[in-house]
Design a protein around this nucleic acid. Sequence first.
DNA 1: CTAATCACCTGAAGGC
DNA 2: TGCCTTCAGGTGATTA
Length: 269
Amino acid sequence: MPELPEVETVARELKKTIIGKTINYIEPIWIKSFENNSDLNVSEQKVISIDRRGKYLIICLEKSYLVVHLRMTGQLLYFDNEKETNLDDYIRVIIKFHYGMLLFKDVRKFGRIYHVENIKSFLSHIGPDALDENFTEKCFANKLQSSKMSIKAFLLSQKFVSGMGNIYTDEVLFLSKVHPSTIAANIPKKRRKNLFINMQSVLKNSVQNMGSTISDYRDPAGKKGKNQYYFNVYGRDGMACKVCESNIVKMKFAGRGTHYCPKCQIVNY
DNA sequence: CTAATCACCTGAAGGC
DNA sequence: TGCCTTCAGGTGATTA
């Protein structure tokens, strides 16, 4: 479920609640949800800061890191008062602080919490964050020009730029008037620039709206996002394009449900 | 290198 | 009501 804006929202909420707290213990309920890659103890380490790279949320401890990937249905829920919690369903990992606790809820069990010491090597296969200020239009253009992948697959792969997922990719391609099957390297210079600008604005707008909630996504306080009210194409198949009134089409592309306007979004250039 | 398929999981929704 | 199929904000391995 969560793409960059949702993970960023979670990160911002966690900054308000768990920085400075000391971990009492971490308890995996579903064993595969927690992958311990370090001999160091998590217990008695203090939370120093919260970071994010693409869809990875990074909880920086004194000597190591807890790295969270929510995948499809993961949620990090924070509770000050343990009596407010209900541990009933789908809680896969408990991170207990001396005061308060963070619960990792995940219906489909795809999500992970990793305990690692070397964050750089752990994330070495991931490209720069889409909103990283050092990731410029020029960097983006260079990568586009050297790829023969379809633009949809290019944006979904996290190795060129990280943070884009299925929803925001469809939204960005619509605003950029680029058909999802267009070969990345074939996109002309002017539209490359457009693509980059739209990618940033779509993501930033969604962060402003606290992310998109289709079904499962919640922030650590349990709140839904509001960005889903502003989609142009995602989930709007069969409905009129907001620009040209053609019917929005949905089809399987790059292995994912892909929404686009057949009139506004032109194939090849 | 790129693309397609499966695998990992569970629940919701639609067809019959 | 109930069964069966398909689909879902993701990604990594494997196979063409």
